[in-house]
Nucleic acid binder design. Structure first.
Lengths: 123, 123
DNA sequence: CTAAGACCTGACGTTGACGTCAGAGGCAAG
DNA sequence: CTTGCCTCTGACGTCAACGTCAGGTCTTAG
């Protein structure tokens, strides 16, 4: 399939796909005229890339992770790197959880105040 | 206390504090010569700001949240906003969790391969 | 008094993941 | 064969949270 179709199926922009290729995250066959062609598996690959981006991994880390996801292998240095990234994600999840709890208690508290008969909460 | 001391106590840069003020997140008294002076409670305020930034909230959202954290009140529109932000954080936590699990299984798998007698994993 | 820091404003630089635009070429339908 | 959409490369724009630098002021220890 061509780049537009892949973009639509994976829910990303055409620009993003070209950027992924530029970053070495996604390879594409080229037609004689230079147009990119992707296999069906490209959709899952892009979804994986998106998932890793969503986790806050920079392109360089994703570039390191991707081949290992395919082969299931890694060098000890890479393992150390991945472990560090995983720990970073763990910390970020804790940060998110505490911020979420703070927002949550704010919401619950304000809703309680609001339902207790106050005309309309202060601005 | 002055800005350098607050920066040290809160673990952020002086530049960051001036930026927070610029964004309306942090107020400071001014000495006649124009220097900023903060109360002791400034430390906790900065830590809270940092926590919200760490959760991915942009300055505008933080600016909306901060007064409500103090008063415990909020308008219905703000509540809707906060709920949306909380849901976004929830989604982000799920994204992080799935990416972490993927990294984790990669780590576990690669470590198993590595310990099963392979000379040194492929690069 | 003076020198060393700390502080001020204002402004430009940085980074990452794209958005957007320009100008040119490719491809299937009619 | 042309029309209209898709694609190409290359390059500049964006946005947020600061970093960094310049040039000047303030404060405080000696």
């Amino acid at each position: 399939m061509r780049i537009g179709e892949l973009a639509a199926k994976a829910g990303v922009s055409v620009r993003a796909l070209r950027y992924y290729e530029e970053q070495g995250l996604l390879v594409a066959e080229r037609s004689p005229s230079g147009q990119r062609h992707y296999p069906d598996s490209g959709v899952d690959q892009v979804l994986l890339i998106q998932q890793l981006y969503a986790a806050g991994l920079p392109s360089r880390s994703i570039r390191a992770v991707l081949p290992c996801v395919e082969t299931g292998e890694a060098t000890p240095e890479l393992l150390e790197w991945f472990t560090a990234e995983r720990d970073r994600i763990d910390r970020q999840m804790r940060d998110l959880a505490s911020a979420r709890d703070r927002l949550d208690s704010l919401i619950v508290g304000a809703t309680a105040v609001w339902r207790s008969g106050r005309p309309c909460p202060a601005r």
